[in-house]
Amino acid sequence: MLLIECPYCGERPEPEFVYGGQAHIVRPPQPQELSAQQWADFLYQRDNTRGVHAERWRHTHGCGRFFNALRDTTNDHFLATYKVGESPPTGLRVPR
């Protein structure tokens, strides 16, 4: 049971959260203009990171908000959590 810092509510136990997959994948604003391959990449291509991973969580059984997190997949430690639309705190960058 991880301890996850919701940017709105503070540190909360994992059962209040739902994992939301890789972060910073924006839905293309004009899907019709994309090739089938580009659209398939958007739908299905995800990183399988060993190390720092940018991912989405939702504080479903709390404030209900989606937010982003940087988590080290090798030891489950969170480097940062931040609100949707924000960049990670200074000194950290979203891995790609």
């Binding site: 989405r56 939702r58 989606f66």
Partner: peptide, 13 residues
């Protein structure tokens, strides 16, 4: 409901 919230909060805020 979760899907609706997802689109509202993260795509169409």
């Amino acid at each position: 409901l979760a899907m609706m919230e997802d689109y509202l909060q993260t795509e169409w805020s």
